[in-house]
């Protein structure tokens, strides 16, 4: 690696490196923070997000847990009861179902059922989402399970800056948070960017980002789908429609204000998410906006989601069920031409 003094090295970072930086910085800043998960220590995590963390902070604070998602969540919750901040890694977010009761009945309700006596500062993070051929149990977006469980915040970053900034904010929040990382974006070169250090990197929870401004249709989305919506927006532009693309970044709490302001301008709404249609979060956004913004709408709002199927393995099957640039474009054009 003989980088010459003249050639400036790129300081752009990928999504995964940004996450890693967040963990290193927060572990350094908070001596009460403990990380726990399967293979996160010696191995450094299945994808390497926690690479080197155990070496630096020791086996007591970076725990290689047995394959026991329920115990992992519950142990982390107990640590939070006794003053710790915990980061729980789910090796794949699909596996979170094995710890479901500990999350929704035990952890999510803790502050509520103790009348505010006990806060649980816990972040459960892990690789999520399809488009990688991961098949049924390595492709899911199951955020709706948790959006339907009061007491949990839900975050889903789409850029390296947000990955770092939102994870740092989440690790400083006193509530249990589910943090959906888009594994298809982990090492994607095209989205690498400069990522600030320390507190300058913080991105507040509950604030949407307008990724592209437009006047003709509002497309609301999050995660990997953000890039598909931006791609679809190009085709729309060629057809004479300028789309405003909103990346909500946080599902709970949801920045309804930003979406509403956009709708007042565009009067048309498309919502896109990877999760299945029925009772998915896209449906929740549609319901809320249909109620809040009915007078502003010039066309029926539309959602583009996965079909109500599991995520199948081989490419043609996966493509068939998941949202795509074509499906988003088609839906948006329909709304624009209504």
């Amino acid at each position: 690696m003989a980088a010459t003094a003249e050639a400036p090295q790129s300081t752009k970072k990928n999504y995964l490196t940004a996450l890693k930086e967040a963990l290193y910085e927060e572990m350094a800043a908070n001596s009460d923070m403990v990380c726990i998960g399967e293979d996160i220590g010696i191995l450094g995590g299945a994808f390497g997000v926690t690479d080197g963390l155990q070496e630096k902070y020791g086996r007591e604070r970076v725990i290689d847990a047995p394959i026991s998602e329920a115990a992992i969540v519950g142990v982390a919750c107990g640590m939070c009861v006794n003053g710790k901040t915990t980061m729980v890694e789910m090796q794949f977010i699909d596996f979170i179902s094995c710890g479901f009761d500990q999350i929704v009945n035990f952890t999510a309700t803790y502050h509520y059922r103790t009348a505010g006596e006990v806060a649980i500062p816990m972040v459960i993070r892990g690789p999520a989402g399809g488009y990688g051929g991961g098949a049924l149990y390595h492709s899911q977006m199951n955020e709706a399970w948790f959006a339907n469980s009061p007491g949990l915040k839900i975050v889903c970053p789409s850029t390296p800056r947000d990955a770092k900034g939102l994870l740092k904010s989440a690790l400083r929040d006193p509530n249990p948070i589910l943090f959906y990382e888009m594994k298809e974006l982990y090492r994607q070169r095209a989205i690498e960017e400069e990522v600030p250090e320390g507190d300058a990197a913080l991105v507040p929870l509950g604030k949407a980002a307008v990724r592209q401004e437009g006047e003709d249709v509002t497309i609301v989305t999050y995660g990997t789908n953000v890039y598909m919506c931006l791609e679809a927006a190009k085709t729309l532009e060629a057809e004479g429609f300028r789309a405003e693309v909103i990346d909500i970044r946080s599902l709970v709490p949801l920045d309804e204000e930003t979406i509403l302001e956009s709708l007042k301008k565009t009067n048309r709404l498309v919502v896109v998410n990877e999760a299945p249609r029925t009772c998915g979060f896209a449906g929740e956004i549609l319901a809320r906006l249909a109620q809040e913004a009915f007078e502003y709408l010039d066309a029926p709002p539309v959602r583009v989601t996965r079909l109500d199927t599991p995520v199948p393995w081989v490419k043609p099957l996966e493509t068939f069920v998941l949202p795509s640039v074509d499906k988003i474009t088609e839906a948006a054009l329909r709304v624009c031409r209504y």
């Binding site: 519950g74 939070c80 500990q102 035990f106 103790t114």
Partner: peptide, 26 residues
Amino acid sequence: SKAKHIIHSTSMLAGTIPAAAGVVYA
């Protein structure tokens, strides 16, 4: 009671043992 060192249970029996382990780990 966090103050009195009593872990808050739910109806999901045995579901408090992980938290108990976490409390003493901390």
